[in-house]
């Protein structure tokens, strides 16, 4: 089987910044409360951009950073749970906009875990010879499904997109995407939903917090083991950006003393499937992690689903 790796990333966020202070004008909340409990200072909210727009902009940057063009891409996978349309898929829209001719194209919904599921799916396709260069995108417009009168959820989310180019590894070079560790707790599915016609996000925060802070660290360790990487070797940890207290709770149990811990939610909020590629793309752009260093990605969220893998930093 061929190897696969992330060769480059890109991201896009709407230019409209919504601060905690701005939210406090319309709902009963304040900056201190949100920073204290969630860790978010501001988020970006789409100002006319669709999910497909944001996915396309992120993908364009990833392609440019990879030194590839639309003609090189043969697979587009988009992780999203907030697509405006059920059909055509966001992936088909991105392919059309970028002029990618005849790629495999589909969306994948594993809520906030979506990017790690999509990355694994693309890596498997490359490893099996079904793709040579794949675009893997996490893109969300959660502002469409936020109940802006609900103070328990309206402060949490944001819009954005991140994209990665996943390619075949040339002969003799090591693979850069470790085995995925994925799973779910389907019996807890009703604690985090975007359900019904014209839906809103609803969650039982305490149940989600308890599950995330206890269930994720053991499976994240297994992802390291499967990749043959000791926790001490992990150079960066990019968890789904839901809540700093969840991330801190996982980190405490995980034991990754040498890792840079991504905290992009401070400036981006929770962008669901977009949060991991967005945070990873920024880490790479700021050169906070050396090329080739092992980075642990771990998504978790609605379903309840989880998935993660160790990747080599592009």
């Amino acid at each position: 089987m061929a190897g696969s790796r992330i060769v480059a990333l890109g991201h896009y966020q709407p230019s409209r910044v919504v601060t905690n202070e701005e939210l406090s004008h319309t709902i009963d909340t304040n900056d201190e409360w949100i920073r204290d409990r969630v860790g978010i200072a501001e988020r970006r909210i789409a100002d006319g951009e669709s999910v497909t727009d944001m996915a396309t902009f992120a993908a364009e940057k990833a392609l440019a950073n990879a030194g590839l063009t639309a003609a090189d891409i043969d697979l587009v996978v988009v992780a999203t749970c907030s697509a405006e349309d059920r059909c055509p898929s966001v992936a088909a829209g991105v392919a059309a906009r970028l002029g990618i001719s005849a790629p495999g194209a589909f969306d994948l919904n594993a809520a906030c875990s979506g990017f790690s599921y999509a990355l694994a799916t693309a890596a498997h396709a490359v490893q099996a010879g079904a793709s040579v260069n794949a675009l893997v995108i996490g893109a969300e417009k959660l502002s469409d499904v936020i109940d802006w009168t609900d103070r328990t959820t309206a402060v949490l989310f944001g819009d954005g997109a991140g994209a990665a180019v996943v390619s075949t590894v040339p002969d003799g070079e090591p693979s850069g995407i470790g085995p995925v560790l994925w799973g779910s707790a389907p019996e807890k599915g009703d604690v985090l939903t975007i359900a019904g016609w014209r839906p809103y996000i609803k969650q039982e925060g305490q149940s989600v917090f308890r599950w995330a802070t206890t269930a994720i660290a053991p499976v994240a360790r297994q992802a390291c083991e499967k990749a043959g990487v000791a926790p001490e070797e992990i150079a960066a940890f990019v968890a789904h950006q839901a809540n700093t207290r969840i991330i801190d709770g996982i980190v405490k149990r995980l034991g990754i003393p040498n890792a840079v811990i991504a905290k992009d939610l401070v400036e981006s909020g929770n962008t669901s499937a977009a949060s991991i590629p967005l945070a990873l793309s920024k880490l790479v752009e700021r050169r906070e992690v050396p090329s080739g260093a092992p980075v642990l990605l771990f998504g978790f969220g609605g379903g309840l689903t989880y998935a993660g893998q160790v990747v080599r930093c592009p």
């Binding site: 409990r37 305490q206 149940s207 308890r210 709770g249």
Partner: peptide, 26 residues
């Protein structure tokens, strides 16, 4: 005690006293 700290307190109490306190009971 905020709602998330409450979860942490409950989990610590479970360990300390050897009890299971389900979400519904919390």
């Amino acid at each position: 005690v905020d709602s998330l700290s409450m979860v942490e307190v409950i989990m610590a109490a479970e360990d300390k006293f050897g009890v299971k306190i389900p979400d519904t009971e919390m």
